[in-house]
């Protein structure tokens, strides 16, 4: 079955485990093959998009710059749970890329409309 719209739900913080970075690899792989990809950041996943991350104390690579390359991969549909942003006092200006905040109902619609949903946690 051809996958026309693949939704990735990102719910983990960026550096506490390898989940975020590994998921990002999968996302870029799908997009590199021309699969339309949509991203939805929920919960602590929103921290993945924070500007000015510093990974040096953890001796990890700061992969957050990769999000800014997503336009090269034609990944333009990026959404975030607006209540997760509010709960963490995160404004749109705090984020590395343009994000559309969604309420719970519109998130449900997004999930309903996807052909394939990835949710690794």
């Amino acid at each position: 079955m051809p996958v026309n719209n693949c939704l990735f739900i990102l719910s983990t913080p960026p550096h506490g485990s390898a989940v975020a970075q590994e998921t990002l690899d999968v996302i870029l792989m799908y997009a590199a093959f021309g699969v339309p990809v949509t991203l939805l950041f929920i919960g602590d996943g929103i921290f993945q998009l924070k500007k000015n991350q510093s990974t040096a104390p953890l001796q990890l690579k700061n992969f957050s710059a990769i999000f800014r390359a997503m336009k090269d991969y034609d990944i333009d549909n990026v959404y975030a749970d607006e209540s997760a942003m509010t709960a963490r006092s995160i404004q749109l200006a705090d984020l590395l890329i343009d994000v559309t905040p969604l309420d719970a109902q519109r998130q449900s619609q997004l999930i309903e409309s996807a052909d394939l949903v990835f949710n690794l946690s």
Binding site: L28, M29, A32, F33, G34, K61, N62, F63, A65, I66, R68, A69, D72, Y73
Partner: peptide
């Protein structure tokens, strides 16, 4: 330059396009 900017080596399809 791409790596310095994005910490990423683009996939071949993306690289050829860029």
């Amino acid at each position: 330059a791409y790596y310095a900017e994005y910490q990423l080596t683009p996939a071949l399809r993306i690289l050829t396009r860029k």
